[in-house]
Design a protein around this nucleic acid. Structure first.
Lengths: 203, 203
DNA sequence: CGTACTTTTGAATCGCATCAAATCTGGTGG
DNA sequence: CCACCAGATTTGATGCGATTCAAAAGTACG
């Protein structure tokens, strides 16, 4: 339990009276922020590291719903009586906890905060819609290009945690993704520099 | 421009002073509520009929982002300076328009309303995450079962606008969907009655 | 009654998942 | 510093499931 310097994003989003309610914690890899079925008491904000939301699939396999590296985990747990997934720490993480009760009280009192909060969730809605659009694309090639064009900046996309993980996010096998990247590079339709995927400018 | 009786859902969501700001309109099939690039002035609520949000894909094909039959279209346009997709009327629709300015003013003033609004968008976030989960499933069979289990009630799912459309929503060819349904029926793992898909109880 | 649309079935093809195995990588501990 | 291990990356071969194209049958509607 440490006092942690708030990231800028949170600094601007949260009203001052909530700043003190934020408590920072270190979570080693493999830890678990919360489990399915439990009652949400805190909202989590990942400062560094990585947290995934996971659920058990139809065949007992583990499905990753979301991967967070910086930002809120489960904003949507604000008004729900139990978690619908597990939150697993996949690499050593620093995260802030904010009591949900305080959040609710403050949202109900501070209209500007509520307004900022709505803006934030709206962004998330748009991002998710775009992700659904991407996942409906059949070919691996087009899915990858769509990702770079929508999530990247100016045709450049920084792979956050390795291509194997990216393959999972894209809903394809890692072999297929490696092969697709190699193909595109051969045809000069894609550049891979370090952990960046770049779509070259056409003349 | 008619005065329309507000659906219960809206009645409860919107504060009374916004009720008068709602204006009902009839839109014939093929009409368009808004176009990509335009500035949002109104929020739309579909009372009856169907509206789809569409965008042009990488290959010039039309991609359906969302299909609304009852409920808000583009709640997320609340705080955005231009639409990121087209809203097409796919079957004769009655929709309410609510001026965005009024919405914003009221949200800023009425904390309870803001709170209800946040709850609504949170639900949408959860729905979208579940949809992403579904779209990452490889087999048509499991996608369909996932849909019935998550969107349906007690193992029953009412197909809103035909199986061909459903196939599009699931991100699958309609032929594959028809075949999968036939297979599952043959194996008594699914019942199709009218427009309902039902998963039989096991014992 | 004709037109447009959905539903259905068939056959051919192809992309991707899958399994397997080799190489490469960063990080750990002796 | 090096041996070693866990994980990521890469390449190959195989098979299945879904797409695709085609065409027929059923259905709704003006």
């Amino acid at each position: 339990m440490d006092r942690v310097i708030l990231p800028d994003k949170l600094q601007q989003l949260l009203p001052p009276e909530l700043h003190d309610a934020c408590v920072g914690n270190h979570y080693p890899k493999g830890n678990c922020l919360f489990r399915v079925g439990h009652t949400p008491h805190h909202m989590f904000y990942v400062v560094s590291g990585e947290v995934t939301l996971e659920r058990v699939g139809l065949h007992g396999d583990i499905v990753v719903l979301q991967r967070t590296r910086g930002g809120f985990v489960s904003e949507a747990s604000l008004n729900v009586s139990s978690y619908h997934c597990d939150a697993m720490v996949t690499s050593a993480t620093v995260a802030l906890s904010i009591p949900i009760i305080e959040m609710q009280k403050t949202l109900a009192r501070d209209n500007n905060f509520a307004s900022r909060w709505i803006t934030m969730i709206n962004d998330e809605v748009r991002r998710l819609r775009t992700q659904c659009e991407r996942l409906r694309i059949k070919s691996v090639k087009d899915r990858l290009l769509h990702l770079i064009l929508t999530e990247g900046i100016d045709g450049q996309y920084s792979v956050p945690s390795g291509l194997k993980t990216l393959a999972g996010d894209l809903g394809v096998s890692h072999e297929a993704l490696y092969r697709t990247i190699a193909d595109l590079q051969k045809k000069n339709q894609l550049l891979k520099v370090q952990d960046k995927l770049i779509i070259p400018k056409s003349p």
